[in-house]
């Protein structure tokens, strides 16, 4: 039984069947990649996992509990953090403040009225955020406005913010999209390091095969809203069905 169990999930947008009977099981403490050509339904699937979309049919269980019908912040509090395709950070806040917010969310839950408390009294939060920035090699940027950083740094900050919540499952939506080769390699190294140092399950959606094959332990190939195969990277590489899905019937 995996930490994330997706059963018979279907989602229809008008006349388009975006997902049809998707079954997926992500085992705990593994890196699981979901790949597939454009329009295969990867992002739709991800949105169904985090509460942005509600599937028409099927069930999504995280650690034995259903996530369906819950709002994104509730699902996040259950232990699922999400990294977006374009980094979503608090652009008008400093890097340090960006890092403190998830620390508050982890400690205080989804809402707490701490309106006249002094930030200096939140020593545990400050220490945790500083340690996390240290881990991400961003300690020197702590006073910077986060919107003025490079894209690679924003991505790094976003991943750090997700980790600060100590999630059990980290979802990454094309984390290297639009990145230069060097930045991509940095991101791969960072994710590898995270994998080694923490008890965390990572599910990753990716186009870049280099990223997929250097990170993942299991791969699910999605095409036209249904999973084609699920296997180890070695077996996926030469799989005829995968080639067909990516290169078309004639190949």
């Amino acid at each position: 039984m995996g930490i994330l169990e997706v059963k018979d999930v279907g989602k229809r947008f008008g006349g388009l069947q975006a997902l049809g009977d998707v079954n997926l099981s992500v085992a705990e403490n593994t890196v699981h990649a979901i790949i597939g050509p454009n329009g295969a339904g990867k992002s739709t699937l991800l949105n169904c996992l985090v509460g942005k979309l509600i599937p028409d049919t099927g069930s999504v269980m995280f650690d034995g509990q259903s996530v369906l019908g819950r709002t994104p912040f509730e699902i996040n509090q259950m232990g699922i953090s999400r990294v977006f395709q374009t980094p979503e950070i608090f652009g008008e806040l400093s890097v340090m403040e960006n890092m403190m917010i998830p620390c508050f969310a982890k400690r205080d839950g989804s809402f707490r009225m701490h309106a006249i408390e002094n930030m200096h009294n939140e020593k545990d939060i400050v220490e945790k955020a500083e340690a996390m920035l240290e881990d991400m090699n961003m300690a020197d940027k702590r006073h910077m406005h986060s919107s003025s950083m490079s894209r690679g740094d924003k991505r790094r900050l976003e991943i750090g913010m997700c980790l600060a919540q100590e999630p059990r499952l980290l979802l990454l939506d094309e984390p290297t999209a639009g990145m230069a080769r060097a930045d991509t390699n940095n991101t791969i190294d960072l994710l590898k390091q995270i994998k080694e140092e923490r008890d965390i399950t990572i599910a990753i959606i990716e186009h870049d095969m280099h990223v997929v094959f250097s990170l993942s332990e299991r791969i699910t190939v999605l095409a036209q809203g249904t999973p084609l195969v699920e296997d180890t990277p070695e077996n996926i590489k030469g799989h005829p069905k995968v080639r067909e899905a990516y290169l078309g019937e004639s190949a």
Partner: peptide
């Protein structure tokens, strides 16, 4: 206060706030 920081976070990026629990 931390509350004030959360309010500025609302102005800055509600999506991220939602996905930060």
């Amino acid at each position: 206060s931390p509350f004030g920081m959360m309010l500025r976070a609302i102005k800055s990026n509600q999506t991220r706030l939602n996905y930060t629990g």
